[in-house]
Design a protein around this nucleic acid. Structure first.
Ligand code: FES
Ligand code: FES
Lengths: 154, 154
DNA sequence: TAAACTGATACTATATTAGTATCAATTAAA
DNA sequence: TTTAATTGATACTAATATAGTATCAGTTTA
């Protein structure tokens, strides 16, 4: 059971790159090359994120994508909803025509409770938090692969 | 994002039926009919559950499937693992050749922590618990659709 | 011996995920 | 002012996962 699909995964990486260079434009091409993300695939993801106001873009030479928002205001929950649809454990455990007391159904409550737990966990994980984590990982072992440099500013 | 797929969903329903009639054999046909589960699909699921020692079977006339185990010892986590593979948030956020300090990577720890939260939540939900929930729902509003009767003993 | 069953397995259909290609419009710079 | 680097929009293909169907052999009870 894969919780994050490629598009969410790629979107997170791209957002991390943009967050690390917040305020300046990065082209889809440069992000794709640096992070081994298929170029056209990435462009679609970036456009989708523009539609959801997570990033902005500038056309033409020297154009690209930029993060304006606070990276801490972008959670993995949001990205999952955009790219994989809202988290839902099961449409309904039993077909409606039989279980017609949905409002009181304990089973259904159970399911909704878990949905919320999962969502809340992913809400805690923001792009800002991930970026700080990366920077910490980078400081701990500076002589090894310099993640922030290698991944975000190569 | 669908957390439970059809096979897990169907498997849970079938196990609930078997748990409600613990000790006696139910045929795949009767379970399929009563719960609107595609017959051949269900049979595959039942066979898979036999292989994982969740249920037992008896061949021939008057044969079928039976639950021997304690229903509280069967969790949704187990079923997800059987039918959807182990819960994994993301193989790894960055490709190995760059992030080569896996052991210390904070990001990776974050991911593994969420994996465990999700798994633990589903571990709390056992077939035994679900069955009791159903029975409670049934008692609360006995004049409305009698779930336990309708779904499990029609 | 016939009918009601499971065991095993192969097959098809549908949906989702992943990835590619193309062309028009925009913009900075040569 | 032309050219190259870029995004916008959208259509397409490929690969994989999910869902569902079909078939035949073997077992058991009546
Ligand atoms: S299981 Fe869906 S309403 Fe009860
Ligand atoms: S993100 Fe995978 S080891 Fe760091």
């Amino acid at each position: 059971m894969k919780v994050l699909t490629k598009n969410t995964d790629y979107a997170i990486r791209a957002l991390l790159a943009l967050a690390a260079k917040k305020g300046s434009y990065l082209s889809a091409k440069s992000i794709a090359t640096e992070h081994d993300i298929p170029y056209q695939f990435l462009r679609r993801l970036l456009q989708e994120m523009i539609r959801h106001n997570l990033i902005v873009s500038k056309e033409g030479v020297q154009g690209g994508f930029m993060m304006e928002k606070d990276p801490d205001a972008i959670s993995v929950t949001q990205l999952i909803e955009i790219f994989q649809g809202k988290v839902q454990v099961s449409e309904c455990m039993f077909r409606k025509q039989i279980c017609n007391n949905r409002a009181r159904c304990v089973l259904r409550h159970e399911i909704m409770r878990i949905e919320q737990v999962v969502q809340r966990e992913f809400e805690k994980v923001t792009i800002g938090k991930l970026l700080r984590d990366l920077q910490v990982a980078n400081k701990v072992e500076p002589q090894s692969a310099n993640i922030e440099q290698a991944v975000l500013n190569p």
